[in-house]
Amino acid sequence: MILQDLAQPRQDYSYAFMDAYAKRELRRRILKAIAIPGYQVPYASRELPIARGWGTGGLQVTLSLVGPESVVKVIDQGADDSVNAANLRRFITRMSGAETTTDTLKATILQSRHRIPEEIMTEGQALVLQVPDPEPLRGVTADMSKASQLHADADYGQIWLLLYEQLVRYRQYIQGASYPSLVNGRYIISPSPIPRWDTPKLHQSAHLTLLSAGREKRLYAVPPYTAVYPLEFSDVPFQVEDQRGWVCKTTGIQNKFMNELPQEDGTAQYELSDSGYAEKLMNRGKTAPTYYDDEGNFYHAGYLRPPVLPTL
């Protein structure tokens, strides 16, 4: 026998790029993440031909799920045609032959950076969120080892203290995106830098959400039908972005998350952030029910409460 007999014929890349070992490892970790909602599972995180910090965590998850029959939607900031979304989509199809779509309801795998679509996702869909920083306690301690210990002990006093300090100083919570949320009553997660508008969509959702940070090598999950509550004191409710009165300049729709577009005369115009949804509205296509209805009511009645300014 010679060495060549032991070698395999040259094949430039495995199916879906990652080799069998890398995929198996990731798949084992994904199962753990689903079994322990909100717990950050450490993983090896292989290098991909996309820069680190550009969605490699989400991409590894997508590549370990994708197959020829998959239908993939990729968005960045809500938009399908963002250059970064286009690049990731191009790579996924190049390596898997999967079909792509801009329609949230048609996607079997939806990889997203910073948004959850407006239309209510359904059972059997996988939402893959790209995560730059998986650690909700980073503001409390920059040290991962210390943060892990706090999670182990469910010692979340310091993050509550941060929120309380915000109330004392500003009379409201000032956290923007990545609003810390409690999953299944046990682990606090960063829901990735989705706007607060999207955070409640994780609560008792019909779909599976996988969150993956490639650079930080952690992945975690929010399984379907799992309780997810943004942190709030009982007398000062959590608030989503106030976009009341903002009307989309192309579709005329309200009460969906908008991009604010500064105008030369000092005013602003607004457009739907969810480009797939906008596309459907423009083409008069069939849209599905949305998490917030046209009056701005959230689909879990009573989950979001009207704003209160504390008197401190």
């Binding site: 680190r52 009379r171 830098p193």
Partner: peptide
């Protein structure tokens, strides 16, 4: 990782920025 994360700040962040602007505006209004 370091170089990748550093250059990722070139990516659009307008959704996160909008979320932060909302908070800042509320504080200013208060």
């Amino acid at each position: 990782e370091a170089s990748g994360f550093c250059i990722h700040f070139k990516l659009p962040h307008y959704v996160t920025f909008a979320s932060s602007m909302d908070s800042v505006r509320k504080v200013i209004d208060t």
